[in-house]
Design a protein around this nucleic acid. Sequence first.
DNA 1: GCATCGGGAGAACGTTCGTTCTCTCGACCG
DNA 2: CGGTCGAGAGAACGAACGTTCTCCCGATGC
Lengths: 194, 194
Amino acid sequence: MVLHARGDRTMDAETAELKLLDTAERLFDERGVQAVGMDAIRTASGVSLKRLYQVFPSKELLVEAVLRRRDEAVRAALTGHGERVADGPYERALAVFDWLAGWFAEPDFRGCAFINTFGELGGVTPSVAAVARDHKAALRAYFAEQTDALGAPPVLADQLALLANGAMAVAGITGSPEPAAQAKAAARVLLDAR
Amino acid sequence: MVLHARGDRTMDAETAELKLLDTAERLFDERGVQAVGMDAIRTASGVSLKRLYQVFPSKELLVEAVLRRRDEAVRAALTGHGERVADGPYERALAVFDWLAGWFAEPDFRGCAFINTFGELGGVTPSVAAVARDHKAALRAYFAEQTDALGAPPVLADQLALLANGAMAVAGITGSPEPAAQAKAAARVLLDAR
DNA sequence: GCATCGGGAGAACGTTCGTTCTCTCGACCG
DNA sequence: CGGTCGAGAGAACGAACGTTCTCCCGATGC
């Protein structure tokens, strides 16, 4: 509960945390983690350094929080998109690639944050590696839900996940949204093959 | 030409360049680019800082040289492996995934250097982004050679490249070599589907 | 009204980094 | 053999970073 309702000069901890996560996510996506200083996050977010370190006592914890929030957002978007636009496991599996297409077409798309951050910090920061592993396991699990419902062998879920991750990596590097459609067509072939 | 054949206390420029590229590649793979200082490369390679900056006038140029050399090595390994173990475009396309399997099984495998370095520096260093793009275009071109020979449509080459890149990303993050075999099986389905 | 608390702004601190400079010494040239 | 060149070792420099500290002010409680 907010006990002190002052003017606009200060902000409560929840607002600060939200602004920090939003700002850090955007800057990390644009420039990478190490290229963004805490001071840049302070300036871009308007949250004071003191508050910043109250909410996230170190940069590593901020990075972890950004990735965890994005992990949850992606999981929710995936299942939400699947339920909205497709019914049946076959369509839901394919709908993932439509969701990727929309993501890749965003003007500031620069690849998957988990692939990128793992590449930058995965060899040096175990917590980052763990979040990336968890996230990719969740994507595979979503495909596995659909393939299980189809009675398909588990390896099909792995293969659909490879297509999705390959599309993210290639779309990020080339800047083209095409990999989403290419991966969707390949996924359809794999789904139809059995 | 080496005019001064001294003892072992100095080394000529070619030897220094080789040692620097080898050392930098290993350290960059292990820890990422920004986590490795020029001093660490100096110490690990035994090449003096003075020589280092004679051969590579900046860290950015060293990173670029490491990636370009690896690009050429991968291209050569790909075609060499294809010619050695497989004949015919169908087998050559699949042989890429056997080559990936051997790579993923190396004890210090930490993912594709181009995917990882793009994630770290691609948003900030255009030359790094360009090398990564070129490298991924070359992989796609290798697949395109095989699919063209098979009379398959060009999109199949993109799809095989998505499988290969997805396997690299997932194998790097999870540390498992399995994605290579899963991708190979999927590639076979795609190749057989037409 | 006054003491206290907590926050914002930003200076300060210690470290690390990329890069350059200094010092020294061995090898070649006359 | 004396002078010059270039190399190695590592100190030094300036900037940037993550983190902490200082100063000041407005709001709250008695």
